[in-house]
């Protein structure tokens, strides 16, 4: 019902597109997404204030913070669920206003929520192409869809799935996460936001998902990961952004932090253990906030 005749061609391209995107990222220094002075209040409650954040392509940006710090509000603002009360979103160098989640998705921002938004009764191929089915003579073209889905999963090296025609309800948590991410990649997402991707997973499943996150970034896709689990954050993040009571208190390259300093920042908004104490000089990039 929705979609255009171009869907098929666009999806068929999805498998190849990222290699080009990666080169482009390497040559241009402009971050994919820039937030400037983003604030959001619900009535008198100020949920976010003065958020300045750059999200570069090809890197994993971890968004950490205690409960109520504004992580969810921030990603919902980026993904078009809520419009910011103030500030600007600059996406690929252009000012944008996402009024609905669809606006954001169309622009190339895919959000993988904790509930994953998968249909348990449909199989992997059907889920990955949901809303973007490929047709031949008005009927669904299962062969082309299955090939397209198979190629995307192969590109992401999701190999633990025995049969891509099994229902998503029969998959493990990590595999479901992988399907949800593959669905986003298939729709040409340039930025994938993942909300607590490892929260409900066991050790091996977590490894699977972290591997997938790294692979996304290596394909030139920007990734924002919201997580409570600092172990996981330090395994995959290139950059860490710490929210505290609706403010961004720190942002910088991950190697400049350790678990203790991030915990301090999350709980108190500041850290006694300065970055220089770890033997690393602050970079101009990370100094812009503050």
């Amino acid at each position: 019902m929705t979609g255009s005749p171009h869907d098929g061609a666009r999806l068929a391209e999805a498998g190849r597109a990222p290699s080009g995107a990666r080169d482009e990222v390497a040559t241009t220094g402009e971050p994919l997404l820039r937030l400037r002075g983003i604030g959001k209040h619900f009535g008198p409650v100020q949920a976010l204030a003065g958020i300045d954040l750059d999200v570069p392509a090809g890197q994993v940006t971890a968004l950490v913070g205690d409960n109520g710090a504004g992580k969810s509000t921030l990603i919902k603002t980026i993904s078009g669920i809520w419009e910011p009360s103030e500030g600007q979103i600059i996406w690929q160098g252009r000012h944008v206003h996402f009024r609905t989640p669809k606006d954001a998705t169309d622009a190339g921002i895919a959000t993988v929520y904790q509930d994953l938004a998968l249909c348990d009764n449909l199989d992997i191929v059907q889920n990955m192409l949901l809303g973007h089915e490929i047709r031949r003579h008005l009927l669904l073209d299962e062969v082309t869809m299955e090939k397209t889905a198979k190629r995307t999963l192969h590109d992401l090296r999701v190999t633990t799935v025995r049969n891509i025609r099994q229902t998503v309800g029969s998959l493990s948590g990590g595999q479901r996460q992988a399907v949800a991410v593959a669905k986003a990649v298939m729709l040409d997402a340039r930025l994938v936001i993942m909300d607590e991707p490892t929260a409900a997973l066991g050790v091996s499943q977590t490894a699977l998902v972290l591997d997938l996150i790294t692979r996304l970034a290596s394909r030139g896709i920007a990734v924002i990961v919201v997580s409570h689990n600092l172990n996981d954050v330090f395994k995959v993040a290139d950059r860490i952004a710490v929210l505290y009571l609706g403010r961004l208190v720190e942002v910088g390259p991950a190697p400049e932090y350790d678990t203790a300093s991030v915990v301090d920042l999350m709980t108190t908004g500041m850290s006694q253990r300065s970055r220089t104490a770890n033997g690393l000089a602050p970079t101009p990039d990370s100094g812009q906030e503050g």
Binding site: D123, T160, R162, Q166, T167, G169, S170, L171, S172, G174
Partner: peptide
């Protein structure tokens, strides 16, 4: 091997 769960194919 997480496949033993998947029997719905």
């Amino acid at each position: 091997d997480t496949l033993s769960t998947g029997s719905a194919a």
